[in-house]
Simulated assay, not measured.
Amino acid sequence: MPEIHFTKGHGTGNDFVLFADPEGAIDLNAEQLAAIADRHVGVGGDGVIRAVRSANLPEGEAALAEDEGAEWFMDYHNADGSPAEMCGNGIRVFAEYLTASGLVDLGRSDTLTVATRGGVKDLQRNQRGFQVDLGSWQLDGSDPLVRARGVSVARPGLGINLGNPHVVVALSSLEELAAADLTVAPVLEPAAPEGANVEFVVPHDPLVADGVGHITMRVHERGSGETLSCGTGAAAAALATRHWAGEGAPHHWRVEVPGGTLGVRMWPAEDGEHVSLSGPAVLVYEGTLSI
């Protein structure tokens, strides 16, 4: 029976099972990946991340054509075994895993370039842990009606694409946010063709302090259910709140999630406005798993 040496890690409570497969020789199916992520009979996590050299995957070869520095590919799967384009918390934990494992040598001022299904991403260390440039974003124009258990009436959502799909919903109070039952997937009308992560957001009062916007968020992630944090979801929530706030809203945000605090920043770039995410990346323990 083949064995995998794995590491468990998390970013603000969003947890992952990571393992290295530089040559791309370990081919796990969705059922096996879901078994690893199962919290009752597996290691347990919101997702599984395989570290593969980009040259050994078709998706990685495409990323190398975009940026030859993207040596490593983050092969990310949700807890149900389905593949996902990107994970903002996961890529920070991935960076910590690569450096702690000696797979890359990253100095304090160096940039780590990582290939993902959502494109090539750049990371640097900072005081929070890591900051990742998530790239450009866009309103996707879907703006569905969102129904969630525990929320008394359906609310309009704002569709945002960060390389993966999000729908952000504003709620009126922290009490309403706490009452939402996100163990059940929110219903989108119309439904998202490939599913979507759904973020429920409450702006703080005051919204802005010392030039920084402040919001609280919970999230239901497609393929994983409610998680303690979602990195790209935090970015989407900050972008949506700034959009609703209108002209004069800040470009720096603090996003409170059940697992901690994340930082989001927006700035102009040649290919459109970029958004970055910063936060901790913690490796918890290692083990060996029989598949």
Rank of each mutant, 00 (worst) to 15 (best):
A178T: 15
E59V: 11
C230S: 15
P165D: 06
D80P: 07
L123M: 10
E175H: 09
L98E: 12
P58E: 02
E61M: 10
K121V: 07
G163L: 06
G129V: 07
P156I: 14
L188D: 14
G223K: 08
A209I: 13
R53C: 12
G263H: 06
V255Q: 00
I160T: 02
V201P: 00
A180N: 02
G260I: 04
V257S: 02
P58Y: 01
I91L: 12
A62G: 04
D122Q: 14
M74W: 02
A35E: 15
M266H: 01
L283V: 13
V93M: 13
V284A: 15
D110F: 14
A196E: 09
A95G: 14
T99I: 13
F73Q: 02
R254T: 10
L106K: 05
M74H: 00
R265Q: 12
G260N: 00
Y76C: 01
T99G: 14
G88W: 02
G45P: 00
C230W: 07
G223Q: 14
K8C: 07
L228W: 04
V43E: 10
G287K: 11
I291S: 00
D15V: 13
D143T: 13
G157S: 11
H251M: 08
G42C: 09
R149M: 12
G11K: 12
A84C: 11
A281G: 10
S101R: 14
V168R: 05
V201Q: 05
R218F: 13
P156H: 11
Q124R: 15
N126W: 14
G81R: 08
Q138H: 12
E31M: 09
F16T: 11
G272A: 04
T232G: 09
G102S: 03
E273S: 04
V43L: 13
S173A: 02
R39L: 10
R222A: 00
L57F: 08
V202I: 00
G107Y: 07
H204N: 10
Y76M: 15
L134H: 09
G90V: 08
P22V: 07
E199V: 01
E175F: 01
E256I: 07
L145C: 03
L33G: 05
